[in-house]
């Protein structure tokens, strides 16, 4: 930390340019599993952002006292404690959504996004930038979740947040729900297309060819 990092950039970079899901490949599991509807996606986003921000703050506070050899286990225990708190709160106040999310709330513990950010950033920075970075990453993650969740709910059921937006055929409207949107494969397709779209707009994110066709036969990394 020679010069103080620019907080605004730390916050906004992970939104699109360094998006945790589409570029860093972090936190995919929950990103796909909970996006059948906007409500669950929103709950998941908020829980993850809260856990991530708090964990980054705590770990950054005690970063000078963590021995390097046991840091992984320490970080996981801190994250797990925070997740238990969130889980209990959800069970107490939003039991419907908590049931819909099933084990995925507990799985925030092993969400690579949380550990990835604490390991890569919070461990080397003071609490304020660490928390700003965590919050930014949480927002970037939420953005992807909301897009995928919104699309799946809109085209799968014709609803947004549980309200009928597109009139269904069997209720006299014109929209035939695509039930494939609610199944697993469409989440993969949507996220793949989203990655494609982001990288088409920001070509510097595209991955290098593994194999260059006619001239060279050396597979380039």
């Amino acid at each position: 930390m020679a010069q103080p990092p620019n907080l605004w950039n730390t916050l906004t970079d992970p939104l699109i340019r360094q998006n945790p899901v589409t570029l860093q490949i972090l936190g995919l599991c929950s990103a796909l599993a909970v996006t059948t509807g906007l409500a669950t996606a929103l709950t998941m986003s908020i829980s993850l952002t809260v856990v991530l921000t708090l964990a980054a703050g705590v770990i950054s506070l005690i970063r000078r006292h963590i021995p390097d050899t046991i840091r992984l286990i320490l970080q996981i225990v801190i994250v797990a404690s925070l997740v238990i708190v969130i889980d209990q709160v959800l069970q107490a106040y939003f039991s419907e959504i908590s049931k819909a999310l099933s084990v995925y709330v507990g799985l925030i513990t092993t969400n690579c996004l949380v550990l990835g950010r604490t390991e890569a950033y919070a461990r080397h920075h003071t609490p304020l930038p660490a928390m700003v970075d965590a919050f930014g990453n949480g927002l970037g993650y939420s953005l992807v979740l909301m897009i995928v969740g919104g699309l799946r709910e809109l085209f799968g059921k014709g609803e947004l947040f549980g309200f009928q937006v597109l009139p269904l055929v069997d209720q006299g409207g014109w929209f035939t729900p695509l039930s494939l949107m609610l199944l697993a494969p469409s989440a993969f397709f949507l996220l793949g297309l989203l990655v494609w779209a982001v990288r088409a707009v920001l070509p510097e994110q595209a991955e290098a060819r593994e194999h260059t066709p006619p001239l060279s036969t050396e597979p380039a990394e």
Partner: peptide
């Protein structure tokens, strides 16, 4: 832009 992660998802 589809190379790598994008096509892996598909």
């Amino acid at each position: 832009s589809l190379r790598g992660l994008g096509i892996a998802f598909v």
